[in-house]
Design a protein around this nucleic acid. Structure first.
Lengths: 237, 237
DNA sequence: ACAAAAGTGTTATGGGTACACCCATGC
DNA sequence: GCATGGGTGTACCCATAACACTTTTGT
């Protein structure tokens, strides 16, 4: 904000120096489906990149906040509300959109697994889920955006509790561990995992059981009231 | 990016749905001065918030990247180039600037201590350093932006090597430790600190000494070639 | 009784933290 | 020789990592 008179913008207080870029929000929507981490993509109907897959997005309305715009896109595409949404990064290379200058404020969203299989809201025909490790060619710099979102998600999985956002309200410890393994792309030790999760006090046992092929598993729910705090004093990798 | 026809923007391919917001970059410039962590602020000359202090910033030119715009502001204000600069967050509440819709892509910069006392480039009269724990009333949402930058800086200090960007090319271990203590706002143990830093292999002894009041101290330089990697598998705070 | 998945404890190792004294120089 | 800051080692504790068997249910 705040134009200030400086060598390059010495104009009256109320006008930015030049024409404005367009501002869009794009949302990387993650969900665990079929045992893999997937993202929702939409097929573009117009040039440029007509027919190419892209992450859902659109221009920011002049009177809505960035997060509101992201939630609107999310709702239009999936019908979901009240899911985890976090601002990721703002991409602004002048040539990232061949038509005109577009600055994209990106977000990533986490949908709980299993609930409803969102087939995408309005125009379902053009929306599909793709595993993050098997993406089609993408429009614009969207591949880079997804890679970045994935890096951030993996990172946050380790030192925050965002991981629970990928699970439904009730889940078993094995399901939770699978979710972690799917996102991190790596096997975890069952006993160590359980000890760590349980001693963090972030789960509450619901008292119910889920019957399956073998012995029924205890169901847990996430306690969003517990404040996890990072205590680690690391001072270096 | 990528307008897509959707319930709210079903217009031809090449026009965003409404008028564009203005896009600005604002830069939180940190430097350790006089034993405290300080930020560079400029005094606004025009309404709104005329006479109030604000972080340096300005509108993004239509053909420059966001980072270029941030570096341009940094250069105009301090004369420095080639310093650490990182995108922080994008603030876009519709009412954050009373005049019009302005979306601010914020960055933070770290200047090496001691070098030259940048008194601010062009219009020096209106620029001053303020300790982060003693800020004047600020324009717009700039207080929030600085708080956020500070949180991020403290956080990154612990698990990356950004801290070295706050020091000149050659420094003693005590100076490095002071820098950490100043930013973190907390005392650190000398022996543990030195062991940790040295065993990370990120410093090279220059072989020179700095004479002072007591015993001369060994000088070190940062080895930007060493790739620090986070190995920690934490799975939770 | 057997297949399938749930659930459970111990040990070894490494990193973090706490802590006090000698060393080299200038005055 | 004394004041000033530089430089060094050890012991305890806790978190992590590795590792295999028993339990409960359905068929």
């Amino acid at each position: 904000m705040s134009e200030r008179p400086s060598s390059s913008s010495s104009n009256p207080p109320n006008t930015p120096s030049q024409e404005h870029p367009a501002v869009a929000v794009d949302v990387v929507i993650f969900m665990i489906r079929e045992g893999r981490l997937q993202v929702l993509l939409v097929k573009r109907r117009y040039p440029p990149f007509e027919g190419r897959w892209a992450i859902p997005g659109g221009f920011v309305h002049i009177d809505e906040s960035l997060e509101d715009a992201a939630r609107r896109e999310l709702r239009e595409e999936t019908g979901v509300e009240d899911v985890y949404l976090e601002q990721l990064y703002t991409f602004g290379r002048p040539d990232r959109d061949p038509r005109m200058r577009v600055i994209s404020v990106t977000y990533f969203a986490l949908l709980p697994a299993g609930e409803i299989d969102v087939r995408a809201g309005d125009d379902a025909a053009d929306a599909r889920w793709f595993p993050v490790d098997d993406l089609p060619p993408l429009a614009f710099d969207h591949r880079e955006i997804i890679e970045y979102a994935l890096t951030r998600l993996r990172y946050k999985l380790e030192y925050t509790d965002v991981g629970f956002q990928l699970l439904p309200a009730e889940f078993t410890l094995t399901e939770l561990q699978r979710a972690y393994e799917i996102v991190l792309g790596e096997q975890l030790d069952k006993r160590n995992f359980r000890r760590k999760i349980l001693q963090s006090r972030i789960l509450r046992e619901t008292g119910r059981l889920r019957a399956g092929e073998g012995r029924p598993a205890r169901l847990y729910e996430y306690r969003s009231d517990v404040r996890l705090q990072v205590k680690a004093r690391r001072l270096f990798p």
